[in-house]
Design a protein around this nucleic acid. Structure first.
Length: 522
RNA sequence: GGCGUCGUAGCCAAGUGGCUAAGGCAGCGGAUUGCAAAUCCGCCAUCGCGGGUUCGACUCCCGCCGACGCCUCCA
């Protein structure tokens, strides 16, 4: 099977061949943990997850690493992120989004980072982000990789030795972009352009200390910084870009990796600088063979922003805080009903990673219906093979799986893959055991229909006791509804149906009586 | 200004130089139903605009219009 992706390095589709046959190394830029991760973050992370699961489907052994940036990064002229976070924590505590007692000391950056790291991992796991289940393995934290020869300090030293970095008058260590001829390849920038665009944010005073306006910071001595480490260049903190170069190399254990993913905004400067650092330190001509970037997510056709009121964290969506325009009144109201994580996952992965996906309440409802169909299908198959749960082996030679995989192999064409799967679900299934095995394979990539496949299954949520009680109550109403129906007492029957709906369930008439099931959303 | 992506039905969205332009949602008609829901059957687009290349283009080329991203912290 030919596997190809759009490579940001060359701006074209390229056939993918792993460095080592059968093995794929991937590095994804992860979240900065000074706030809850939002759905835009997760769109990009889940794209990485989909890629990883695709490789696993096609028999590759995948080493996927995603970092957690828990170091605040000073930007010239702006407050430090961790400092901002401290203020935000105080606000969030008042509003109840951060529970009382969760962060004892909002001034302590390590406590803030720890809290949001755990919150992120929790959200990520609910969304079926596989690597989050491997934490702390394969999910390194920047603060743990500052010191030592294999840490950021070690790499900065190496860059100094090799002539790619210098210490400026003010003691700041800069990377010298002119020392690396490949600088600009990824983003299509040239040093001249960067020069002409310089100015703006960066003060003239700082600029004059650099050899070239494009030179970026590797280490900044600063006794007063909120997070600081000792180094040969004084107590201070590392630049933003160096962490990924270091962690990718140290956790994956290779100088050159197969694939690097991230959001499109990371192309420049972040990934450009990573390449310069990694290649500068290793002497290799490349850092990753493929750079694959996901485009931004929009909400109801607008860029997501806090000021527009369309900024959603993953947990906002789980809690039903998505705003919907009421068709009758035209007013914005909250959806109200909780959204199953599988629904959000599906909504975020179902459109191509290189389009600007538009997140909408309508799309969420769509997604819920599709998942519902998959879940129903699975139940039907399981009912048919009751008592005969022996596993059937299927491989990609199965026609439907083969098409499904081939679509994904073509630049992760999820729509095409779904176009193969959904009609198949509707078709006849003479061999339910085989069909179930096929569905499981597809779900190992999509991870949206609850199938017992161990960890990393978004919809495989543990039912809480209160959930179980609700379910029992609804089933009881359904039974009473059946009794009323036998007596042809339609008003009573309808009243029970309304009750069941109001409780968030659907009721279906079957030959065996009324059956209920929980609505996935809305 | 520089670099880049994109424009397919009410919505999401795949795809191809030439058979009926995937699939899903919504909608419509029908079966079923006490009425619904669910389910099943059927219906539902000529591909932003203009020009060119070609026997033939939605698919290739040029121009235009429009949307968006990056160039600065941001997934």
């Amino acid at each position: 099977m030919k596997i190809q992706f759009y490579n940001s390095l060359t701006n074209q589709h390229e056939e993918f061949t792993p460095l080592e046959p059968g093995k794929v190394s991937m590095y994804s830029c992860g979240p900065t943990v000074y706030d809850f991760a939002h759905i835009g973050n997760f769109r990009s992370f889940l794209f990485g997850d989909l890629l990883r699961r695709f490789f696993e489907l096609t028999g590759h052994e995948v080493h996927h690493v995603m970092n957690i940036t828990d170091v605040g990064h000073m930007v010239e002229g702006e407050a430090d992120k961790m400092m901002e976070a401290a203020n935000r924590v105080k606000v969030n505590k008042k509003s109840g989004r951060v529970p009382e007692g969760a962060i004892e000391n909002p001034e302590d950056p390590y406590q803030i980072a720890e809290f949001y790291t755990q919150a992120f991992l929790e959200d990520a796991r609910r969304l079926g982000y596989k690597v989050a289940y491997e934490y702390p393995h394969n999910v390194p934290r920047a603060t743990h990789h500052v010191e030592g020869a294999n840490g950021m300090i070690g790499m900065i030293q190496k860059l100094l030795e090799r002539g790619h970095a210098y210490v400026a008058d003010d003691g700041v260590v800069y990377y010298s972009v002119e020392s690396f001829p490949g600088y600009g390849q990824l983003s299509g920038n040239s040093l001249e352009k960067i020069q002409s665009n310089a100015g703006g944010r960066v003060s003239a005073e700082n600029q004059s200390r650099k050899k070239h306006p494009g030179d970026f910071m590797l280490w900044k001595p600063d006794q007063n910084h909120i997070m600081k480490w000792d180094s040969p260049w004084g107590v201070g903190y590392p630049g933003w870009h160096i962490e990924c170069s270091v962690m990718a190399r140290s956790i994956i254990g290779r100088d050159v990796i197969d694939i690097h993913t991230g959001g499109e905004d990371l192309i420049f400067p972040h990934h450009e600088c990573e390449i310069a650092q990694s290649c500068g330190a290793t002497g290799k001509d490349r850092f990753a063979n493929f750079f694959i970037h996901a485009r931004f997510l929009f909400v109801e056709n607008e860029k997501m922003s806090k000021s527009l009121g369309n900024f959603y964290t993953a947990r906002d969506v789980f809690d039903g805080k998505v705003k919907v325009t009421d068709e009758r009144t035209g007013e914005l109201t909250e959806m109200g009903r909780s959204v199953h994580p599988a629904v959000l996952r599906f909504e975020l992965i179902k459109s191509h990673y290189r389009t600007n996906m538009n997140f909408t309440a309508k799309g969420l409802i769509d997604s819920a219906q599709t998942i519902d169909r998959m879940v129903e299908f699975r139940k039907t198959l399981e009912d048919k093979i009751e008592g005969d749960s022996g596993e059937v082996e299927v491989d990609l030679s199965h026609p439907v799986l083969s098409e499904f995989a081939a679509m994904l192999a073509d630049d992760l064409n999820v729509s095409g893959a779904l176009g193969a799967m959904l009609p198949w679900i509707k078709s006849d299934h003479p061999d339910p055991r085989l069909s179930l095995a096929v569905l499981k394979k597809m779900n190992s990539v999509l991870s949206v229909a609850p199938i017992n496949e161990g960890i990393a299954n978004a919809a495989k949520e543990v039912e809480s006791e209160s959930d179980a009680a609700e379910f029992e109550q609804a089933q009881q109403w359904a039974n009473e509804m059946d009794t009323a129906r036998k007596d042809k007492d339609w008003p009573t029957s309808d009243a029970f149906r309304d009750k069941i709906h109001a409780a968030g369930f659907e009721v279906q008439q079957t030959p065996e009586g009324s059956k209920i099931k929980r609505k996935l959303s809305v």
